[in-house]
């Protein structure tokens, strides 16, 4: 996002694979749906089956490859002063700044797919309501634990 206050770090490359794999199944389902739709149209209206497959297939292809990669590139994070910046989003760009002194508790989570590629998700909980939970997927486990330790030093310094 333009005029961001700090330079943002990208996510670990392993997260790219996680996103691609997670997107693969819905994309395949969409392509299969295209074939199904084509056959229905052919049986009932006599239209050729391939146009609907082609259209949905192209969308599925983009959804399965290009879109997750774009989304991956749109993620960024930074630790500046005593604040955590998390930015994401392709169509709707969001940039959240969390003061480390306001953090209530921290999760370091790793799904099975993430474990395979060596990335983890850091989830920071604040006391707010709307944006109370800030998630940062796709950083290395070591970085997540470093961040968690940094957060804990700040929490200790300034009690609520």
């Amino acid at each position: 996002m333009d005029s961001t206050p700090v330079a943002l770090n990208p996510l670990e490359p392993g997260q790219r694979w996680v996103m691609l794999i997670l997107n693969a199944i819905p994309s395949l389902m969409l392509a299969a749906g295209g074939v199904g739709l084509g056959m229905v149209l052919q049986d009932n209206l006599g239209w050729p089956w391939w146009p609907s497959f082609a259209i949905l297939g192209l969308i599925a292809l983009w959804g399965g490859t290009g879109a997750p990669l774009r989304r991956f590139r749109a993620w960024g994070w930074a630790l500046a002063d005593d604040e955590l910046h998390v930015a994401y989003g392709v169509w709707t760009q969001v940039h959240t700044i969390v003061p480390l002194t306001r953090v209530q508790h921290i999760d370091v989570a790793q799904g099975p797919l993430q474990r395979l590629f060596g990335v983890a998700t850091l989830i920071v909980h604040t006391a707010g309501a709307a944006h109370a939970t800030v998630s940062l997927p796709g950083i290395s486990r070591a970085t997540a634990e470093e961040l968690r330790d940094v957060v804990r030093t700040h929490v200790r310094a300034e009690p609520w």
């Binding site: 996002m1 003061p99 604040t126 309501a129 944006h131 109370a132």
Partner: peptide
């Protein structure tokens, strides 16, 4: 608490942004 700057696709075309402050 957390403060967020958000820009939807339309906002990027119109050149605006929204600020959400959480308490």
């Amino acid at each position: 608490q957390a403060i967020t700057v958000r820009r939807t696709w339309l906002q990027r075309r119109l050149g605006t942004a929204s600020v959400y402050s959480d308490t």
